[in-house]
Design a protein around this nucleic acid. Sequence first.
DNA 1: CCTACCGATCGGTAGG
DNA 2: CCTACCGATCGGTAGG
Lengths: 201, 201
Amino acid sequence: MAASKTKPAAEEPNRRADIVRAAGRLFHEKGYSATTIRDIANAVGMRSGSPFYHFKTKHDMLRAVVLEGIGKIDAAVAKAAHSGKSPRATFEAMLRAHLQQLLGEQGRDFAAALLHESRHLEPAELAAVVALKDRYETMWQKALQDLKRAGLIADDSQVARLFLMGALNWTVQWYRPDGSRTIAQIARQLAGFLLGKPQRP
Amino acid sequence: MAASKTKPAAEEPNRRADIVRAAGRLFHEKGYSATTIRDIANAVGMRSGSPFYHFKTKHDMLRAVVLEGIGKIDAAVAKAAHSGKSPRATFEAMLRAHLQQLLGEQGRDFAAALLHESRHLEPAELAAVVALKDRYETMWQKALQDLKRAGLIADDSQVARLFLMGALNWTVQWYRPDGSRTIAQIARQLAGFLLGKPQRP
DNA sequence: CCTACCGATCGGTAGG
DNA sequence: CCTACCGATCGGTAGG
């Protein structure tokens, strides 16, 4: 990961990470194809040729952004999945974790790029991302199984999981940070929408 | 294909419509920014400058594609909404109509471009599209109201509608025409997922 | 990480 | 709708 040559004391600005962050934001806002190297360089205060000191190609930047996106989501949801709560509480915690990455300031650009720009990766890169995505979605499939076993849901099929992923990922299209609903509220409402109101709060 | 100049009797090929169709397919496959005028010209058997005889700019092509997309979906779902069946049957017919436009050969490119490329429109064009989209989604809000009145669903809020739109529109990401599920089956399964199994088939 | 640059390609146009 | 073309911009590189 780190490409430092001389190891500076403590406050070394990590320029590579800066580029990934700026690229993520721009890929999210304008799309991969409409974002230029000059846009990215500009955003981090470099000249147009300099990002290539950190990345060989524009595609490599996209790959870094997308991998960062799926890594963050996977870690956050995996943690929620193993919190040892009831099936319903675990599920709601997973919803919250996913939405937090998708909509929160920390991860939204990476997540949005993952969802909408992955297709611009080259086939081999895309295959690697798809493999990670499949592993991620397996976590959700298991969560649905647990809910069904607990009698909280009737359908735990793969298509049901895809409906769920749709409801979740579509929030990117309409959520506004300054809107009237918090991320936690949205997670709770989705849980209620899918499972009905909890019997005992 | 045919490049006739003189006006043929009845079978005049509508070149403008050809361009819109080709543009829709390419915008869907590669995205707006990654699609070139030369791609589009090529797809309809023209030279690179000729599409500009039919459209002033590339943006105008995108606008035509997106308007075609929302026009088709709106018409199809409006027809299903007024079929005079029971709330549940009407709702399922609306799901089917929406998915048919989204996933079927006739409309998928237009619909996908509408969902994913609209943001490349200029502000004024985008505002017009958003207005049409709002009108469209109002139909769904009413459908949810009817379902709630009929006791088939607990939550008919705006967020519930957005969850529904997410589940629907996300199908674009995973549906395969040669897969094991038909469009009608997906519509039925989504109805069951949201409303539970019907009491009397 | 900058300067200076290159070949390729892009959206669009003039004139027929 | 084609031919011929243009200015702008793009991803990327050489050499420091």
